[in-house]
Amino acid sequence: MNRKSYKGYVYLAPVLAIMLVFTAYPLVRAIFMSFCEDYSIINGSYKGINLENYADLFKDKDFRKAITNTITYVIFVVPLSVVISLLIANLLNSHIRFQGLFQTLYFLPYVTSVIAIGVVWRWILHSQYGLLNSILNFFGFESIGWLTDRNYSMASLIIFAVWKSLAFDIMIFLAALQGISPDLYSAARVDATPRWRVFFRITVPAMRPIIAYAFVMGIINSFKVYNEVFSLFNGSAGPSGYNSAITIVFYIYDKFYNNYKYGIAAAGSVVLFLLIMFFTAIQRLPGRIRARKEAAQK
């Protein structure tokens, strides 16, 4: 390592300058807003500085539900998506015929219009004519009201969301797989090591930074889930009337843009912020512990 110098800041300067104006400033303002009672976005007026917004927030059963829903969502969607994507990316990167064709096919969902995606998923999950229920019936199972039964709202949302995040994860994993030096594999080939062991002994460790990235980003993005809910339930947060699939950002958006409760929306954002901080910190723990152990062993 070279000595500490301020040179790093020269490299960071462009990014920091833009973020100061377009991210840090509005963020600080949002945090400030969260402590203002009856804040008006129009003229910046407020009644007083207190914790009224936070009190309102936790009194609201919709917000509490939004928190539990969002956490459930994160716990299911992130690991599922990473594991499936890793598997598919690995297959795509192995010696297969029509490799280019397959890679393109897996990329296409990423550019498909969101309208088409919402429409087709509502058709797949439709209780009467849906593809998924047809398959279930074929195997002798009963139809499920994926979009009508509020007990299944989160399940439907999770299935949809895993599907939706696959294309992105596959893409970055592929890029990482392509970057692994072939020399790493040659040794294994000589030893005739079983493929699954090559995968866990060589591929996964070499991709550790990218897998970590997928996890961190997965957690952050999943905590901010909004569009998935909106497009699956046709604009509401679950079967009409029920907020059974409400998420934190859905709640924030509704408070801000539909109910003009800017302070409460801002307070919701701060709570979300703290939650994400907490979860990303937990996520990093195993890495930290391992690093510490390794350091101790040396």
Partner: peptide, 29 residues
């Protein structure tokens, strides 16, 4: 690759900006 004073803090703040929903920043921006 570079080591500079306050790197950890800058990086944490940097990541922290991701944790607030963009919808909240829209009007101010």
């Amino acid at each position: 690759r570079l080591d500079f004073p306050g790197k950890k803090i800058v990086f944490s703040l940097f990541m922290a900006t991701l944790m607030i929903p963009g919808e909240m920043l829209l009007i101010t921006n």
